[in-house]
Design a protein around this nucleic acid. Structure first.
Lengths: 195, 195
DNA sequence: CTCCAAAGTAGAACGTGTTTCAATCCCCGA
DNA sequence: TCGGGGATTGAAACACGTTCTACTTTGGAG
């Protein structure tokens, strides 16, 4: 990403960390990033678009972390649980930012959804790797593409995680609650390979 | 709900059906409902609050439908799949309304989330009834409260459904895609009772 | 019936996302 | 070096959610 765009996104992240979605006032973002409002709009179609760009940065960060310390555990379910636990921990560390990004993700705009979809693909890969237990490529790629069942399970886990996070964003449950639910889901969805 | 409030909600639903979230302009809602803007705001805290009130109406409708024609099938998984299939069909019949309500549900406002939470409880009951296969009370109540496992499974199914719907709202997948994913989830999560 | 508090009304006002526009700047090819 | 075209800027304008205000209506207690 170009220098100017990055500065804009970074500023947005900073403001979102402090006060969530509403605190990201685009006039302020532009000011603090040292650009005109029009420039911001030349590079990002909307507030949601801007925050989804932040999501992309976060995804890269998550991939790096997973790469550095792959989830541990003796079974697929254990590794997946561990993966979601650390992912959840990462998100809950900056609750306002996470809430802001979640809200942007759920705007329902197809333009946005397309970018969210690419995020989902990355997550699917990470989850699949956690289930398999291998290392995979540094960019989140897999040694071989997921088969039908793997895709299904990974997608379901992702969905559960997403829904949990949305509930958490509204104050419906705690970080620990999310982790528990992901553990339940992992245990129910991932059959240790002996059938 | 009082007559005036109902008229406001009905107007909002009408506008949402036509043009989704953005088409629900509160000035228009007030006009078409024949009340002043201030009155609308006396009864609903925000646009999201108004749309969540619509959600409540929809939930009641869904409960009535389920009561009239309980989901059929020989196993819990089949009945749950059928339940979600008809629920999904109902929602996809008015895509703009559904999108609008989904967006309201994901606003992240705790005030809103509380009301959404009550919706979730109702859904959990309906799902549990579908798994069990019995009739239950006409109001969606159960003959006996769900045990731990039932709650977990119902919650997970709900989460998957919700996430699917959000994806659908953004154009990421089709109605059929949702139904398939719910079937996958049901088959993986609900063990026919022989363990 | 009278009176009052609560509810309703019309309309202005404010904040913020988004668009538009004229003027200016900057870089790159000729 | 010069010229041109796209990017940037600053500022205004617009739309819509939300709030506020001053005034009117209404319905029930005394």
């Amino acid at each position: 990403m170009e220098e100017r765009s990055r500065r804009i996104v970074d500023t947005a992240v900073e403001l979102a960390e402090q006060g969530g979605f509403e605190a990201v006032r685009l006039r302020d973002v532009a000011d603090q990033a040292g650009v005109a409002l029009g420039t911001l709009y030349r590079r990002f179609r909307s507030k949601e678009d801007l925050l989804v760009a932040a999501l992309e940065q976060e995804a890269e960060e998550l991939e790096r972390r997973v790469e550095a310390r792959p989830p541990r555990g003796n079974t697929g379910a254990e590794r997946v649980t561990s993966f979601f636990a650390s992912g959840t921990r990462g998100l809950c560390r900056r609750p306002n930012l996470t809430r802001a990004v979640l809200r942007a993700m759920t705007s329902g705009d197809p333009e946005i959804a397309g970018k969210v979809s690419r995020f989902h693909d990355r997550m699917t890969n990470l989850i699949t790797r956690a289930i398999r237990g291998g290392a995979g490529g540094g960019d989140g790629s897999l040694t071989h593409p997921p088969d039908e069942t793997e895709r299904t399970v990974a997608l379901l886990l992702e969905h559960v995680w997403f829904a949990c996070l949305v509930g958490w964003a509204g104050g419906l449950h705690s970080q620990a609650g999310i982790v528990e639910q992901m553990q339940d889901a992992a245990e129910l969805l991932i059959t240790t390979d002996d059938d």
